[in-house]
């Protein structure tokens, strides 16, 4: 027991040490990331002057929110099919399609989607140009799998008699889904949305393949800057990331803990 606790401490140190260093050195005056000279916030100003970064960020934000919305819809449908529908023709293929993207290396997903887009363009003239739309399609495709994992596990835990009770009380299948199932699995759908959002915001490899000229997402901009060497501007950006995520995750954790007894119960509490 003691050993595992020590490992846990070590593991957390390993996970957080690089981030802490990253944050500290974002306030370093010097361009050298490893030598501390004096406190400064100048890299933050530099960051906001960088139009490429800002544009990349805005594009990524747009793609990520649209991706999250679409993959939540498809992912919830897929979960419902997998958990509730039982066997149907093509079910094995379907379940494979919803799980495989979880582990498929990005380079394969990216390249194959690009070739699809190029091939389709030759065959049916769509998509004539690659950019935000093709990135969105690619992101939705792999995010569906992640949303499905999150939502289907919640759906499976849900007491099935709740849906039967609603049906027994006169609600048809569609009503049952929207009035009973959906509200009960809503927390999972929300975390699925957040997961898809961050995955999309995070993706470099797939976006690089399926993007076209002029559409550079934030990771693509960061990547080209990082390739040129270490830059404190990236540290500043990372710090902003970390702060945003700290705030939002603490908030959502607090919310989840506050409301979970009422929204997560199965009615079996005695």
């Amino acid at each position: 027991m003691k050993l595992t606790k020590i490992m846990l401490g070590f593991g957390f140190a390993f996970l957080y040490f690089p981030l802490v260093i990253l944050v500290i050195y974002s306030f370093n005056e010097s361009r050298l990331v490893t030598v501390w000279s004096e406190f400064s916030v100048k890299w933050y100003f530099e960051l906001f002057k960088d139009e490429q970064l800002i544009n990349g960020f805005l594009l990524s934000l747009r793609i990520a929110s649209l991706t999250a919305c679409a993959s939540v819809v498809f992912g919830t449908m897929a979960s419902y099919i997998l958990v509730k529908f039982g066997r149907f023709p093509g079910q094995t293929i379907f379940s494979g399609l919803t799980v495989a993207p979880l582990v498929m290396p990005d380079v394969i997903t990216g390249l194959s989607l690009l070739l699809l887009f190029v091939g389709l363009n030759e065959l049916i003239g769509w998509p004539s140009a690659r950019g935000a739309t093709t990135i969105w399609i690619a992101h939705v495709t792999f995010c569906i799998a992640f949303v499905t994992v999150v939502v289907s596990s919640r759906l499976r835990e849900m007491d099935g008699s709740l849906e039967e009770a609603a049906m027994d009380l006169g609600a048809g299948p569609v009503k049952v889904f929207f009035y009973i199932t959906l509200p009960i699995i809503m927390p999972a759908i929300m975390s699925g949305w957040l997961l898809a959002f961050t995955l999309s915001l995070d993706d470099l490899v797939i976006a690089s393949f399926v993007s076209g000229p002029g559409a550079s997402t934030l990771p693509m901009v960061i990547y080209s800057s990082v390739r040129l060497g270490v830059s404190p501007k990236i540290n500043a950006l990372a710090t902003i990331f970390v702060v945003c995520i700290l705030i939002s995750s603490t908030a959502s954790w607090w919310l989840a803990n506050r409301f979970s007894p009422a929204s997560g119960g199965t009615g079996k509490t005695t």
Binding site: L19, L22, V230, A238
Partner: peptide, 9 residues
């Protein structure tokens, strides 16, 4: 936080 940034760190 960004995977890219974490590796960059």
């Amino acid at each position: 936080t960004s995977f890219l940034i974490r590796i960059y760190a």
